[in-house]
């Protein structure tokens, strides 16, 4: 009843190739430009509860009010919330082929200035001494020096700061 299906059936291969254009919108546009031009991460604030909105966005999910045009710099350094050694890389949806990875670890970063629970992000982690890795340690970004586009890929990877 299970498994073992003979491979005598015809399958027709096909490849989907599409090009989308993703509009960042005014809030993320500011984030992207600060990243591209000044290597800075920025966030905006909720005018009511004052919490930081990271990534920046139009409204506060807690108060459901329109975000203020009040900007703060956060990170780009931060705290390592989680790390994992990468096994098999996934497929890059831009090419349909295996993604080339710039580092051998993945991590979750709590950027300086953002409270825990109010926004963190995923990135790569370049690790020299895996035995010294621990959650809660400081991490700093390594930026691309040229041809930055305004996406998180302008940061090549993060590196742990050993004490």
């Amino acid at each position: 009843m299970n498994q073992k299906v003979p491979d005598q059936y015809i399958k027709i291969p096909h490849t989907v190739r599409l090009l989308y254009r993703y509009a960042a919108g005014p809030y993320m546009a500011r984030f992207c430009k600060e990243l591209r031009e000044n290597k800075r991460l920025v966030a905006n604030r909720c005018p009511r509860c004052r919490r930081i909105l990271f990534p920046p966005r139009i409204s506060c999910p807690d108060c459901m009010v329109r975000a203020a045009d009040e900007w703060v710099e956060v990170g780009p350094g931060g705290t390592l919330l989680f790390f994992a050694e990468l096994g098999r890389p996934g497929i890059d949806t831009r090419t349909g082929e295996v993604q080339e990875l710039p580092a051998s670890y993945a991590c979750l970063i709590q950027p300086d200035g953002v409270l825990i629970g109010q926004g963190c992000f995923s990135h790569w982690l370049k690790v020299e001494n895996p035995e010294k890795l621990r959650e809660g340690m400081r991490v700093e970004p390594v930026f691309k020096e040229e041809r930055r586009l305004g996406t998180l890929e302008d940061i090549l990877y993060y590196v742990p700061v050993e004490e």
């Binding site: 096909h14 490849t15 190739r17 993703y22 509009a23 960042a24 993320m28 090419t95 305004g150």
Partner: peptide
């Protein structure tokens, strides 16, 4: 305005 090209390629078998 910040607009990013985002290609999508995926392989299937029907």
């Amino acid at each position: 305005k910040m607009v990013f090209d985002e290609p999508y390629v995926a392989h299937y078998q029907y």
